[in-house]
Amino acid sequence: MSFFGMTKILLTSLFRRPATRLYPFEVRAPYPATRGSIGITVEKCILCGICMKKCPAMAIQVDKPSRRWAIDRLRCVACNYCVDVCPTKCLTMKPEYAAPTVTRDTEPFTIPPPAPKPAAG
């Protein structure tokens, strides 16, 4: 039994670099696998709505007539499910987190109409 069991640890850490980062000035790079935020390649989306149906947090809205795909970033729990189920693989999970916001907005994307099929010949 001892009184000073911590002394060695404390003395070593006194002369060591801090274990923490000076956050806003020094930002840790995310791991490639980190589930940060959802990105979409609008050209590939076919507005099938599967991601909207499957999203457990109901964060995605897909509206076919107005060709609008929108995500509520504060609702999204970054589960990666939409990325797995999207048939055209147009969704990606980016390792960077979404920017902080003070309002509860959805982030809309307009899906361009599919490119007309090149005429034969």
Partner: peptide
């Protein structure tokens, strides 16, 4: 975080196996 992508909630298990 390096293996699952999350620090607290991992979302790597699914019925039938794992996702990563």
């Amino acid at each position: 975080e390096e293996t699952t992508g999350g620090r607290v909630i991992f979302n790597v298990c699914k019925p039938g196996g794992i996702r990563r």
